[in-house]
Amino acid sequence: MATVQVSEAEKVYILHGIRDDLRADGRGCEDYRHMEIETDVVSNTDGSARVTLGHTAVLVGIKAEIGKPRPLVPNEGYLEFFVDCSANATPEFEGRGGEELGIELSNMLYKVFNKHCLDLRSLCISEGEHCWLLYVDVLLLQCDGNLYDAISVAVKAALFNTKIPRVHISADEDGGKEIELSDDPYDCMRVDVENVPCIVTLCKIGHRHVVDATLQEKACSVASVLVSVTHSGSVTCTRKVGGGSLDPESIFEMIEAGKRVGKSLHAPLMKLLQQEESLGKRRQKVGFLG
């Protein structure tokens, strides 16, 4: 993870600021930085999204492929995650530097997004033989703290944007099945993202916790809790990261705050995605050079 150095006096300043609910950039403890979301940014994917949160920038691309279902759940498709830490984000990621973080992130994403969040049955084509496999590739373009939240929002937006071609199964004379992809590019199925959770990272700093910590704030915290929350406010996954220890009481408080914040993330996100969708071709594409 990109780290920044912070002097003792700066730490004290940040700590007291959080105690007074006024952070260095003027936000309160439960405020996010403003977020920019654009979908359909990579043309050779089935769904893609780019999210910037402060100076954190992530790009998510989803590719649908036909594969074999997992043996334990023959009637479900599944998602594969891969996180690539570009050395553009920070020189620390050069060579194999970002590998560890990439694996950690992709494991977390796998856990969060593969359970009860999508209708995985709809990804099944023929039981036990064929299913849709969604390869979710995440590219970190810039790191400025709070990667998990930005990635989860980007994944949700990309899933919303994903268009999977419809398939028709026809049986040939000797009982074999043949899969036929629809020729019409508009004949596609969409993924229902209603229950897809967003991750909220809460950093414990001093006696309080904050959401959307910047790198400077992150340097002052010893432990944080990740909570993945759906639109209805139910928690699907929690995880503690960081070396420090947390009081059980404060963990409870943090999860409660995470629920509250996470729930409020979904409505504006869905509104934005629907607004973008309704603009259709009239939408001004910004891309990476805008």
Partner: peptide, 12 residues
């Protein structure tokens, strides 16, 4: 508590 989400606009 507020999350401000928006579409990106062209930089000018």
């Amino acid at each position: 508590m507020a999350a401000d989400m928006r579409l990106p606009t062209l930089r000018k």
